[in-house]
Design a protein around this nucleic acid. Structure first.
Length: 860
RNA sequence: GCGAGAGUGGCGGAAUUGGUAGACGCGCCAGAUUUAGGAUCUGGUACUUUAACCGGUGUGGGGGUUCGAGUCCCCCCUCUCGUACCA
């Protein structure tokens, strides 16, 4: 083998690493630890796409680097293997999901190994393994014991197409997140987790986390804390009072009507006989609207008068009670006091139905809008008049509390977590029903394993597939011997991924989900890398479970993931598109406004840049230039297997890191892969030369100061860049080294070897191969990371730009030991031919001198 | 609407604390090698002016601070992502 051939060297090292357990997590605890985690992959049937290796390569570089820096590194991988696709495949083909899952895991594992990731394969976990889900069930029992898991008969998001209910977080625009099927609301008995009990802590503890600000903000918004007041409105002739939640109790004097959600439990109480029919009609109308329709029709408000009245406790006035679906049953108390003067939604509604509007905050003179939501002095508000919002709030809340009609109150948007699914391929609940009451399965009887069934289809009535396993469902209560029925719902896919990072710490431990001695050493996760699509769902659920486990004394940290980074999506190659209408090409701008246009794909050679836009070559016709999301339908999916086959895993890893900053969205470019592949070829030639035999081009000479300088520049840059996860510029520094070194007569071993170590986290196969050919018997994975030494960077002379009035007019070369000598440097600067020209007939009014950096002469 | 982030060559992207804008890679141009193509190597490549030097203009647009601004401040435009009747 005389040329660089990744297909030969890569499998060899992959095999070596596996057989020698090169990346086994150390057992001793005498070094600092580093826990570096990838988000739990779902082993889908279609295998890896190029998005996976992006985050995985980033973490792998860090893991390999940290090992060489003297850390004990925990870098595991496993499978979030419960889930719908395997089950749907089972419904279609009758293949047991376990079979499909096992097959897919095998493919995934092989693909990951093919990319040379340094996982500790002895710690692989699989959520579908009974030894794993035993502890998922155990944690559920903890939740149950603490009153954080309860059954509830509530309207839920039922998706007929998927045959299951979905969590609010899984419903997007009224459709299922998975598959995009319509979702309707329907009451069913469900398990619910009381995540709301942790709302405040989930919010507060975001503070100390090193997470992207946008992700923290999304979680804050999702939790949606708002501070205000609950106020009771009496209803004449009725016992019940209507309680509302408002963030603007200061505007109560402007509450000219009330609105209840159509589902509110007092609607029928307050409705008068005359309005009964109309109210019933509206309720039915609102009920039938799906969430999607509610949003579509949001521009036009609707509602009906109930005929009833309530008393505004602030001024004793009677105000009409309406129902309208712009008030949501599940937020606050499901009822509002409407203050049209100060709230845009109420204003719109009041205007539509001719309800009175009273302003309670004085808008500025030039205010021209409708409702005024800004700050200002209170008006029309009796004892609040003149007070600004903050003071008015304090005063009215005191007044409400004194008069027993209201109190300060905090409200959260966050709702309890709907935790059951009508599916087969999920964790069974460790719950039996005795006399209709739920009862935990004793800990010693865990795990409750999945029974086999012959049909994976949910029943039309919404009975889960597990209900078909009669012998399994019908059991006896081990305590009383009574007949009992097992819970037939299963847990959602989130369950297993809520705590997997703990199982990696002690995957074989059988005394609990995690060995606490190990947990104290390894937690928290130091770096967690994964897609931003999990910003709310997984990351909020996992934080919730972690806090519960903290309260149970199972874990020692309040938060699981100290630092979080999202890798950006990789888009397809840039595409140029022209638009055709009736056989004629029209501009992209026109096409956007025209019906029935045909898209024509152009090659890069057909277009050119003109001003801000791309046009067809030689014309003025504008075309679109855009990188699109990879999708099967668009046919722009890049398959990592193909890239590895053609260029090797090292090239794929290197390219994905070289594309740009990790967090950024970026388009794929096959030409770019060729570029980094060329770099690896040049690297190979640096060691083995042009000669066809395998002669090593390395000398045992002492390095020159120039060679040391080039090496140490690389060490400095690569080290700093890895620490800051700037992999693209680290690779650039490696390229600069190779470009320089290729011009040398020979490469001294003492320069070549440190370089190989710098290269190895990025392109581990080629680095190991060359290392080995340099005569080393052992992997370089545990070598020491080279130490950067400032002394080698010292230049003999430095170049300093000379500016006149802020513009560079000359460059001067100054001996290094003179670079801080102001007089010398400025003196030299003034002798430059081009500088003399600019100084002619002027007066220097200021001389700026930044040692070693710049000279600026300000003249007049 | 609201929230967050981003606008730099033909393209992906570099630029410590304000101090030579365009590192590195792609593409393109020229040359070497080759029967030819590919691969490889060498050099060039922001725009503009020039034979060349010397200049001029340039980091979405406008203003400001500064000896000096891609970087700091104010206003505006565009794009991406998230979110949406949350009282």
């Amino acid at each position: 083998m005389s040329t660089y051939d990744p297909s030969k060297i890569e499998p060899r090292w992959q095999k070596y690493w596996l057989e020698n357990k090169t990346f086994k997590t150390p057992e001793n605890k005498d070094k600092p630890k580093y826990y570096i985690l990838d988000m739990f992959p779902y082993p889908s049937g279609s295998g890896l796409h190029v998005g996976h290796p992006e985050g995985y390569t980033a973490t792998d570089i860090l893991a390999r680097y940290k090992r060489m820096k003297g850390f004990n590194v925990l870098h595991p991988i496993g499978w979030d293997a419960f889930g719908l696709p395997a089950e749907q495949y089972a419904v279609k083909t009758g293949t047991h999901p376990r079979e499909t899952t096992e097959k897919n895991i095998k493919i995934f594992r092989e693909q990951l190994q093919m990319l040379g990731f340094s996982y500790d394969w002895d710690r692989e976990v699989d959520t579908t393994d009974p030894n794993y889900y035993k502890w998922t069930q155990w944690i559920f029992l903890k939740l149950f014991e603490r009153g954080l898991a309860y059954e509830s008969e509530e309207p839920v998001n039922w998706c007929p197409e998927l045959g299951t209910v979905l969590a609010n977080e899984e419903v997007i625009d009224g459709k299922s997140e998975v598959g995009g099927f319509p979702v309707i609301r329907r009451p069913m008995r469900q398990w619910v987790l009381k995540i709301t009990a942790y709302a405040e802590r989930l919010l507060e503890d975001l503070e100390g986390l090193d997470w992207p600000e946008s992700t923290k903000e999304m979680q804050r918004n999702w939790i949606g804390k708002s501070i205000g007041a609950e106020i009771d409105f009496a209803v004449p002739q009725h016992e019940e009072k209507i309680r509302v939640f408002t963030t603007r109790p200061d505007t109560i004097f402007g509450a000219t009507y009330m609105v209840l959600a159509p589902e509110h439990y007092l609607v029928d109480v307050v409705t008068t006989d005359e309005q009964k029919e109309e109210v019933a009609k509206y309720k039915e109308y609102a009920e039938q609207k799906s969430d999607l329709e509610r949003q579509d029709l949001s521009k036009q408000k609707s509602g009906v008068f109930t005929g009833g009245y309530a008393i505004n406790p602030a001024n004793g006035k009677e105000i009409p009670i309406w129902i309208a679906d712009y008030v949501l049953a599940h937020y606050g108390t499901g009822a509002i006091m409407a203050v049209p003067g100060e709230d845009e939604r109420d204003w719109e509604f009041a205007e539509q139905y001719g309800l009175p509007i009273v302003r309670t905050v004085q808008p500025p003179d030039d205010f021209e809008g409708t409702a005024f939501t800004g700050d200002g002095p209170s008006i029309n508000s009796d004892f609040l008049d003149g007070l600004y919002i903050t003071d008015a709030k304090t005063k009215i809340i005191n007044w409400l509390e004194e008069n027993g009609v209201g109190k300060k109150s905090v409200n959260y948007k966050l709702r309890d977590w709907l935790f059951s699914r009508q599916r087969y391929w999920g964790e069974p609940f460790p719950i039996i029903h005795v006399d209709g009451e739920p009862k935990p399965v004793p800990e010693k009887d865990l795990p409750v394993t999945l029974p086999d069934v012959d049909d994976f289809q949910p029943t039309k009535t919404g009975e889960p597939p597990l209900a078909r396993a009669k012998n399994w469902v019908e059991t006896t209560d081990p305590e009383t011997g009574k007949k009992a029925l097992r819970e037939t719902n299963t847990m959602p896919q989130w369950a297993g991924s809520c705590w997997y990072y703990l199982r990696y710490i002690s995957p074989d431990f059988d005394g609990g989900p995690v060995d606490q001695n190990e947990e104290k050493y390894w937690m928290p996760v130091d770096l967690y890398v994964g897609g931003s699509e999990h910003s709310v769902l997984h990351l909020l659920y996992a934080r919730f479970w972690h806090k519960v486990l903290y309260d149970c004394g199972v874990v020692s940290t309040k938060e699981p993931f100290q630092k979080l980074v999202h890798q950006g999506m990789i888009l397809g190659e840039v595409e140029y598109t022209a638009y055709e209408k009736d056989g004629k090409i029209i501009s992209a701008e026109e096409a956007a406004k025209t019906e029935g246009v045909k898209r024509v794909k152009l090659s890069e050679n057909d277009v050119e840049k003109k001003g801000e836009r791309f046009v067809m070559k030689g014309t003025e016709i504008m075309v679109d230039s855009k990188a699109h999301k990879m999708s099967k339908s668009r046919g722009n999916v890049i398959n990592p297997d193909d890239v590895v086959e053609k260029y090797g895993a090292d090239s794929l890893r290197l390219y994905e890191m070289f594309m740009g900053p990790l967090e950024q969205v970026k388009p794929w470019s096959t030409k770019g892969v060729e570029g980094v592949n060329r770099f690896l070829n040049r690297t190979w030639r640096l060691f083995f030369g042009e000669n066809k035999e395998e002669k090593i081009n390395i000398s045992e000479d002492n390095p020159s100061s120039e060679q040391l300088k080039v090496l140490h520049e690389a060490i400095k840059k690569v080290t700093e860049d890895i620490e800051n996860m700037r992999f693209n510029t680290a690779i650039s520094a490696l390229m600069i080294f190779v470009n320089e070194a290729n011009s040398w007569e020979n490469v001294p071993r003492s320069v070549a070897e440190p370089f190989l170590i710098l290269l190895s986290p990025f392109a581990p196969h080629i680095a190991e191969e060359i290392w080995n050919r340099l005569g080393h018997k052992q992997s370089l994975a545990h070598e020491d990371w080279p130490q950067f030494k400032e002394e080698f960077l010292v230049e003999e002379s430095v170049e300093i730009p000379v500016q006149v009035n802020g513009k560079v007019r000359a460059n001067i070369t100054v001996p290094a030991d003179k670079q801080k000598d102001k007089e010398f440097v400025i003196g030299l600067a003034k002798q430059q031919k081009n500088i003399i020209r600019y100084l002619d007939k002027t007066t220097i009014i200021k001389e700026i001198f930044v040692p070693g950096r710049i000279v600026n002469l300000v003249v007049k």
